[in-house]
Every structure is written in structure tokens, then in C-alpha cells.
Amino acid sequence: MEYNGRHDKERNNNQQLESQELQGDKQQRYEPQVPYVVPVSEIVEPVDQASKAAKKHRFWIGLTAILAIAASIVLGDGSSFSMRDVMSNGIGNGMQAGTKLATTDEGIELLSRDFEIEMKQGTTSSRMLIWDFAAEDGDVVTVRVNNVVVAANIGIMNKPIALDIPIPSVVEVEGVKDGVGGITYGIKFPGAAGGSAYFNVAPEGGANVYTLKIP
């Protein structure tokens, strides 16, 4: 091919320019647009926090179950007592007021007794808690403190009744009416040295005497 001077030179230049423009177009047209990629840490982090919180809550509710079992063992949950525990002397060591020993008054072979109870040092007043430890059969008693009637003709139930009493004093529980099988009652004086409950049978028309004294 003859080099035809200026025209060839211009054609070459044009060809070069066209090829550059074409390459530029290619660059503009074909360069892929790279999207912004969210880092994995940003996606995972909130989910990770939620699962951590769930694990913590699961741990604490599981630990609560274990601690509750330990507490029931230590505190002696749900101890049950029977007449055999108090038959010999009518004293229930460590029994809570309101303890029920029998479902019926029949066959309760408790003797009617008087008690002398020592209270804790420095006690000047206390409460008397009295309840029916067998069936609620309409037993009625009258309570006297130092020969003064503080509660007359009270029907005793399984739920204790609280009466304020001075210390020292002499408390008499007089049987007024027998429902069925004897006037069965339990009595407790919070603040007593032994912390025991006393189980008794009051004769109808007769009285049991509790002498409360301080050392």
C-alpha cells in the first residue's frame, strides 16, 4: 500500500481515535458496577445479641429451678405430721400453728393436760394462736387470761385465731361445746422458748391451763 502522504496520515489518526473512542465506550459500557457489599459482621451481630440474651434467660430460669429445689430441701417444704408425733405428751416440736393432724375427731386418744410454758427472755406480750387440729366439727371454747374472759364462745376452725395476751400470765381454755369426738384444739404461743405447738382435748365444761412464765 502506498503511503499517500497526508490523507493516509489523517486516516491513521482517525482510525487510532476511533479505536480509542471504542475502547473508551467499552470501558464505560462494560465496566461492571460493583454493588456495595454489606460486611458479614454487620449482618450477624444483632442476631448474635438476641441469641445471647435468650441463652442468658434460659440459664437463669434453669438455675432458678435448681435453687428452688435446694430451698425446698433446706426449708423442709410440705412436712406432714400425724397424731403419732404428739400422742405421748401432746407437744409438737417445731410444728407450725395451724398444723392439721387428723381428718376426723374419732379415735383421737389424747389426754387432757395442763402445760407450763417458758417464754423467751424479755417477752412482755405475745399472741395465742388456737385452731382445731382435726375435723371442723363445731367445737366451741372460751379463753380466759388471768381469770378475765378475752374470747367467749369462739368456734375453732382449722385456720388459727390470734389473741393478744400479756406475759407472764395464766391462760385457760374452757371447753363449751363438743362437736363430734371431743373438743380437739391446737395452741401455740409465738415467742415461747421451745417454739412448740401444743395439742390438747378440752373437757366439756372443764378447762386446760397454760402457765406462761419468763425465766
Binding site: A65, I69, S72, A97
Partner: peptide, 16 residues
């Protein structure tokens, strides 16, 4: 002014 039976801890343990 009387004691009542508290809920047994064993029952709460079962629920937990």
C-alpha cells in the same frame, strides 16, 4: 397475724 402455708418451693421448681 397468723401464719399461712407458703407456696412450696418444689412446686415453683417444677414450673421453672
Amino acid at each position: 397475724e397468723i401464719p399461712v402455708a407458703s407456696a412450696p418451693f418444689f412446686g415453683i421448681a417444677i414450673i421453672s
